[in-house]
């Protein structure tokens, strides 16, 4: 049975027999390639090659140098670095058995987790209070993003000015609670990390706040209204509609903050230099001490690699999670697959 009956059939026959470029010879004899695909490829590779060249030129030698140092026992007191003796995995062994590094990792994870949760809870809370327009919204918004615009090292010094025992913060707390508050923000080994966390939270609440504001404001109204009409309380609407729809944004806010918190250096260093005791010896701080105070360049390099591996593992995991969320989100909102593909 022919595929097209009636007039369509005749059309088809007509087309098959009509003279075409194949038989007649095309007036334009360009090669049969795909213009757009070719242009895109050309564009793609010219852009990517720049990127790759820059990354390879800058980062590759750096990583190679780092690798060289990790396997050579270079001492700043023993001649040139290029003559250093090959020591195999000795440095790595030293690094992975170094209890100080273990503690530093634990502290960093603690610090990152704590400050991430702190930032998120406060940021999300503020966003929930603020995402609907109200009188003064712009004022609060501007005020709330200010900490993010403050240079971190300024925050560290300001912390020092504010947090000493007889300082303004304890003074204000005393007058609020009506009795002497004597928190040792800067000297208690048990809470020093918490102090850095407080500053980190103050600094980066705006990040979570901004993301969550955007997320909340972008939620479609209809499902929420529908849920309300169906008798859901505000709390139920929040838990069953808003929270699940916001999940990708939440995951993003948490992951980005967590990763940036692990890298935090200026505040912990200028306030405590690892002390009191070793209460604030986090990964970056310890690495700084080993490399720039002990001048153990090789051990520092091996440590950097170990940390790099841990970070890459964390980042890859984070990327995996983010991608899954993104795909889920795309499915929910059915983005314009056909036209952009």
């Amino acid at each position: 049975m022919p595929p097209f009956p009636g007039s369509a059939l005749s059309l088809l026959q007509n087309m098959n027999s009509s003279p075409t470029s194949n038989t007649n010879g095309s007036t334009k004899s360009r090669p049969r390639q795909l213009v757009q695909a070719r242009a895109v490829q050309r564009f793609k590779w010219s852009v990517l090659s720049v990127l790759i060249v820059v990354l390879v030129a800058v980062l590759f030698p750096v990583l190679m140098l780092q690798l060289y140092f990790s396997f050579h026992g270079y001492s700043v007191y023993g001649g040139s670095w290029w003559d250093a003796e090959f020591v195999g995995l000795e440095l790595f062994e030293e690094v992975v058995t170094d209890p100080r590094l273990g503690w530093a990792i634990i502290r960093s994870l603690l610090f990152a987790t704590g400050s991430t949760i702190g930032c998120f809870v406060i940021g999300f809370g503020l966003a929930l209070l603020m995402y609907r327009p109200f009188r003064g919204q712009a004022f609060y918004y501007i005020l709330f993003i200010l900490p993010m615009l403050t240079v971190p090292i300024v925050i560290a010094y300001t912390g020092e000015m504010l947090l000493y025992q007889k300082g303004p913060v304890n003074d204000l707390l005393s007058s609020i609670f009506g009795r002497q508050v004597n928190i040792l923000w800067l000297a208690n080994a048990d809470t020093a990390l918490l102090t850095v966390m407080v500053l980190e939270v103050w600094n980066w609440v705006p990040f979570s706040f901004i993301i969550m504001m955007a997320g909340l404001a972008a939620l479609p109204d209809e499902p929420i209204e529908a849920a309300k009409i169906l008798g859901a309380s505000k709390w139920r609407v929040f838990v069953e509609i808003q929270l699940p729809l916001l999940r990708p944004v939440i995951v993003l806010a948490l992951i980005l903050r967590f990763l940036e918190a692990i890298a935090e250096f200026p505040k912990a260093w200028s306030l405590f230099q690892g002390g009191p005791g070793s209460a604030t010896e986090t990964i970056p701080t310890y690495l700084y001490i080993v490399t720039w105070q002990y001048f153990e360049i090789s051990k520092g390099a091996a440590m950097s690699y170990v940390i790099l591996l841990i970070m890459v593992a964390i980042v890859l995991l984070a990327i995996q999670i983010l991608r899954r969320e993104k795909i889920g989100l795309d499915q929910i909102y059915d983005s314009r697959k056909e036209t952009t593909a």
Partner: peptide, 22 residues
């Protein structure tokens, strides 16, 4: 219109193949 390239096949205008044209 030329926003997509056919994976295979030809588009002709006045018997000229225009796959190549922007």
């Amino acid at each position: 219109a030329g926003f997509e390239d056919p994976t295979t096949g030809e588009i002709l205008v006045e018997n000229d193949v225009i796959n190549e044209l922007e």
